[in-house]
Design a protein around this nucleic acid. Structure first.
Lengths: 343, 343
DNA sequence: CTGAAAGCGCTAACAC
DNA sequence: GTGTTAGCGCTTTCAG
């Protein structure tokens, strides 16, 4: 192959060029760039200076090939928006960046036959030191074995491996708190607009809702199905509006909650005078819709940061025991979409 | 019973193993995996079969090192959410995925001294065949030289290079159409809640708004400053509500528009009876807020797809002329937040 | 159509 | 402290 050249026609400098200019060996250059000990300050300075002059940058591929370490973390994400997953991805990006690792992303599409397993394979092929699986749609245990550390965020371990870590936003607790807020206000029961049950996140929220009801000795009415979208919330809201007994609704996502409110208002039910609605997410606009939405906040940033700390630990100290993940904070944000039931 | 995969010295098969099993040379294996011509179907079949049996996957780093091609595209994004940039990133991810290239992401934070230039450098170091710069905050021309093709999405070329492509959602046109919709409804003038002017996207929207006003012979009132958030829209809305002459507002983003409406309603102005509001984005919930929001749709998916097609062309056929980017579709979505001015 | 030899740029393991 | 010697797994060049 021809050596890659810059626009000046000068070849891209390699560690050999730096070594020559600094009057040392290539290994010494390597040591300097890897912050290894046993290099005199004087030599280090000379090497850095030579590198600077030449515009030298270590070649990532060569480094990876020789060392087996890629210094990159791969993320598997669902390639569709939706406030929750998109925000989580942003938080993960930031957290990865803060660890100093580079980031590779593979997005899957819901219904993709290759699915998560395919995405993981492609990441492994590209070379990563660790993998983050973010809110995957459940497709059963994937029949693959991965021996880089894996972090599952808001999901159960989908496949086994010696070093898997799981973390989550504490959806079960958040859903309980949201439901209990409504019960405490005096509502006889709480209806639920659920997310698709193939999502772990949706199942946890449903379970938290059920648990809160059970703890108060109420039986759970049938849950309505949504797909996270405001449209699906709107459809569920129309069904709910048809039933005069409904006074309280907990939606598994803010977008669905907004759809529910839309349908309710359109049907002539007042919110919160006739029906109270609680969401889940605390998206930034939740404070500004009409009426401002009571909801629970998903702690994406701390959860991503914490999860990545664990993952990096698993990568860098394979033999150390991993500390358990901290419990994420539970935060209920009470605004104007909830009130006591009508008399 | 899948073979262990990873870097722990496990028996990861190499092309040599495949070659041995298939009874061919390593070069032939390479040819098969690169879809090169001049391999008999029979040999190809045998190689594929052997690879399958061994669970062979080409090693990306080795391939990169030997060929100089990484088959990955790097994306520079702003590491903060906000509906627009986050959705654009999702569209870009999907588009990259469809090209068959792998994806590396570097997120910058607004105010980061290294900024876009630093992000680009780190991408170059990691090794990418092309770079996408997505909605960067303007920081002046970066004094760097990049010699892989670069695609600027919703931004002017920030630095020069032999192969840069730019594409955008057509914000200027969209803003014009949004403003004209209000003018056509009979409003005397249209107020504007702008995004931060360090964003190209914000400047384009402002310019489109001004142009529409000018085309109708109206002078532009001073624009209000927002930061894309619903909170900032709310603050701007309070200022607007204080002025009885205001009958029409064009906000540079849906989130800000929702904040504006919140402030207006709170101040006792009816929307749209007293004041009409138009947003920009068409987020999925825009149809479900109260009142449902009139807005213009950002065509993220087609723009990302088109842009990536161009970028890949620049990568793979360095000498061919690039066709100009197609004009993105302009779509006004009229809902219930706009009406003629009060008499 | 297929193969043999020669690296790509770097780091690991061991000298010295 | 620093240098030497081997590769990492693949593609390239050039023979056959």
């Amino acid at each position: 192959m021809t050596r890659p050249v810059g626009r000046t026609g000068a070849p891209v400098p390699s560690s050999a060029d730096v070594a020559r200019l600094a009057g040392v060996s290539r290994k010494t250059v390597s040591r300097v760039f890897n912050d290894e000990p046993y290099v005199t300050p004087e030599v280090r300075r000379r090497v850095l200076e030579a590198a600077q002059m030449l515009g030298y940058r270590p070649n990532h591929a060569a480094r990876t090939l020789a060392s087996g370490r890629t210094r990159t973390i791969g993320v598997v994400t669902l390639g569709t928006a939706g406030f929750g997953p998109a925000s989580l991805l942003v938080s993960i990006e930031r957290a990865v960046r803060d660890t100093g690792y580079a980031l590779r992303v593979v997005s899957t599409v819901d219904g993709d036959p290759a699915g998560v397993a395919g995405a993981v394979q492609s990441l492994l092929e590209q070379g990563v030191d660790g993998i983050v699986i973010s809110e995957p749609v459940d497709e059963g245990k994937a029949p693959i074995h991965v021996d880089v550390p894996v972090l599952f965020v808001e999901a159960p371990p989908l496949f086994t491996g010696p070093r898997t870590v799981t973390t989550g936003v504490g959806a079960y607790q958040l859903a309980r708190v949201a439901t209990e807020h409504l019960l405490d206000l005096g509502h006889a029961t709480v209806h639920h607009v659920a997310g698709p049950q193939r999502w772990y996140a949706a199942r946890e929220r449903l379970a938290g809702w059920r648990a809160a009801l059970a703890a108060h000795g109420r039986s759970a009415p049938p849950a309505l199905d949504g797909d996270w979208s405001a449209d699906s919330g709107y459809r569920a809201g129309r069904a709910l509006a048809a039933n005069d007994d409904v006074t309280a609704v907990f939606a598994a996502g803010d977008e669905m909650a907004i759809g529910v409110i839309h349908a309710l208002l359109e049907a002539g039910r007042r919110v919160p005078a006739d029906v109270s609605v609680v969401g889940f997410d605390d998206m930034p606009i939740a404070a500004h819709v009409t009426p401002p939405l009571t909801t629970v906040r998903q702690p994406f940033d701390p959860v991503a940061r914490e999860g990545l700390k664990l993952l990096v630990q698993a990568i860098e100290k394979p033999d150390a025991d991993l500390p358990p993940a901290l419990d994420p904070p539970v935060e209920l944000v009470v605004r104007a979409s909830t009130a006591p039931p009508p008399p």
